[in-house]
Design a protein around this nucleic acid. Structure first.
Length: 210
DNA sequence: ATCCCGAGGG
DNA sequence: CCCTCTGGAT
């Protein structure tokens, strides 16, 4: 996709959805961090069903320690990878209390040092909690970036760097959510909704489907 | 490269 | 049945 097409691509997504945000439910930075850590290989909808119960019982890191791994497991049993995630949520809460006074650090290295938090989760927190202009490349953004030709790359890190180079600066902060939502509801994995896509004419994939 | 791992959709 | 869902650790 050429530079002019990329600018038009984001102009349209911006007009369609001026204030994009996450569909994960949370009340505090800590809760967003936990929700994102739980969202690996799970839909936002199924994560929200878990976190409603979980955050009602344990809204803060110290409550998460009291609830314990068994209690957390009970709340999140309905999403995949729940054993690893329950262990991580408790350990992550303990580390936040020990190293950061229970607050979520505005620091990539500190975030990635938390159990169950890798580059993608750290980037979502940096973007959504602190408003940093960073791209978190998840399954949707990886697929859409390659399929449309917006920012091709053989792995997520390559796509992230391509996006940082190619997305116009003024759109960088919101681009994360625009791409997620477009990937989730229009440019889906199995059967892309090209017929209702507002950027179809800009897309490298437009004639390879239907 | 492999494991983890439930729910929903087709 | 198979594929997908805001991945991370080993």
């Amino acid at each position: 996709m050429k530079r002019a097409a990329i600018a038009e691509f984001f102009r349209r997504l911006a007009q369609a959805n001026p204030n994009p945000t996450t569909e994960l439910e949370y009340a505090t930075p800590f809760q967003l961090l936990v929700a994102v850590a739980l969202s690996a290989q799970a839909t936002d909808r199924s994560v929200n069903l878990c976190t409603r119960k979980l955050f009602a019982l344990a809204p803060r890191p110290e409550d998460m320690l009291t609830l314990g791994e068994a209690g957390v497991t009970e709340c999140i049993r309905t999403i995949g990878l729940f054993r690893n995630k329950a262990k991580n949520v408790v350990a992550l809460s303990r580390l936040l209390l020990e190293r950061h006074g229970g607050e979520v650090p505005h620091d990539r290295a500190a975030l990635e040092a938390l159990p169950g938090v890798g580059r993608k989760t750290a980037n979502v927190v940096l973007n959504t909690v602190f408003g940093d202009p960073v791209m978190a490349v998840d399954t949707h953004i990886f697929r859409l970036s390659n399929r449309t030709g917006l920012a091709p790359g053989k792995d997520v890190l390559e796509v992230e760097h391509a996006l940082m180079r190619r997305v116009p600066k003024e759109y960088l902060k919101d681009a994360h959510h625009w791409l997620i939502l477009h990937g989730r509801y229009v440019c889906t994995a199995r059967k892309p909704g090209c017929g209702r896509c507002i950027v179809r004419d800009l897309c490298d994939f437009r004639d390879k489907v239907d």
